[in-house]
Design a protein around this nucleic acid. Structure first.
Lengths: 213, 213
DNA sequence: CGCCAGGTGTTGACGCTGTCAACATCGAGC
DNA sequence: GCTCGATGTTGACAGCGTCAACACCTGGCG
């Protein structure tokens, strides 16, 4: 009667006093980040939201930062999943990488709390091996997708790493700028949905911006 | 005798008790951000560094966040200056925008503390009109540079806003990823200086990544 | 010249936070 | 059936941002 938790599918671990406090804390934290920002998130408030004492979180996370890191790892997993399912629906090579980029931006916008935590400087400064591994997995998937596209003949060969870097940077930068509201006053981004922005970015990356000679 | 301040060129304002406490606080804050990160920065520690009581900062900034915002505005000014001087040294159109991008990334890396504050979510959430104006000025300069290049015939016409968005996003994203250490394990960025990365990014943006048909 | 107002800095207090240590409780496995 | 470890609680501590009240010093008014 303490807290309504999803009652199904995970009976294996953690059901002593609370049900699944670790999960509840992560959910509460995500909600707090959503409403108050990353640094507005508080261990004690998360504990309150989960109806436990202010020190209960320390049985599941060694520190506030480590809870955020757990959230970041989780988010990275969701992102990777999102990219994978997006790509799966594509029929040709070009649509494939358009979907890839679109999925990245859509994740950033619609899972803003997770995304913010994933790239918060607090988390970045205290990165653990697990988090680094999760980030690398995502980037490698990105790179491999481009590699497949290259082998399909759509894009120039021999510079996948370069292309992946630029593509990821552009998508990531645009997502950050949008999330921070920096682009709100620019005509190009003011009224555009993330999907359109991603489309715009990728098409520009593909063709380049040089004038045809 | 309290604190060594630059003794020249600003005698007009603020010399009551301290000398120029506002300036000292900003400097101290910048140092703290550099060593402990944005959220590691503390009003009280900045006050200590300036040899004043823990409440003295409130005579110059209404809150901790507003001090950070002041720092962000200052950083935005420095960035704009950096872009302007970088561009001034260019001889042809292509070199001009290469220099523009290089300057952005070099600023982000070598003035990391300012840059982090400028795009910290704390500051973003409480953006003031002053800060928005400063950000817009920088973006407009970026856009105008591209417009000039377009008129010079180097780049495709009729899509400056689009090109500016993609260019800025790519540079900004790369800077963020580098600062957060996300790229440390990637072959492409591990041992590269910001200048080389910027070069790489801009060349790729210019020519695009499509295979020549 | 003297006073006064307000800009500047200080002292003290409040509630909140992250974290530590000590204690309580519950369930699994001997 | 007991014990041990995992889980949760209570209480404490220092540090933080912020507010209110007070102290000082200086520039401008008479």
């Amino acid at each position: 009667m303490k807290k309504s938790v999803t009652p199904a599918t995970v009976p294996d671990k953690a059901a002593y006093h609370h049900g699944d406090l670790r999960r509840s804390l992560l959910d509460a934290a995500l909600g707090l980040v959503e409403s108050h920002g990353v640094q507005g998130f508080t261990l004690r408030e998360a504990a309150r939201a989960a109806n436990v004492s202010h020190n209960a979180p320390y049985r599941h996370f060694p520190s506030r930062t480590h809870l955020l890191i757990a959230l970041a790892i989780e988010g990275q997993g969701h992102l990777l999943q999102g990219l994978q399912t997006a790509v799966r629906r594509a029929t040709d090579a070009r649509e494939r990488i358009v979907r890839l980029g679109t999925a990245y931006m859509e994740f950033a916008i619609s899972h803003a709390a997770h995304f913010r935590v994933m790239f918060s400087s607090d988390v970045a400064r205290n990165r653990t091996a697990d988090l680094t591994a999760a980030q690398n997995a995502t980037f490698e998937f990105f790179e491999n997708e481009l590699l497949a596209t290259e082998q399909g003949g759509l894009i120039r060969q021999g510079a996948v790493q370069n292309h992946a870097l630029v593509g990821w940077s552009a998508l990531h930068g645009a997502a950050m700028l949008v999330l921070d509201g920096v682009l709100d006053n620019t005509a190009i981004a003011a009224r555009r949905k993330p999907r359109e922005m991603a489309h715009l970015i990728i098409e520009t990356l593909l063709t380049g911006i040089l004038a045809p000679d």
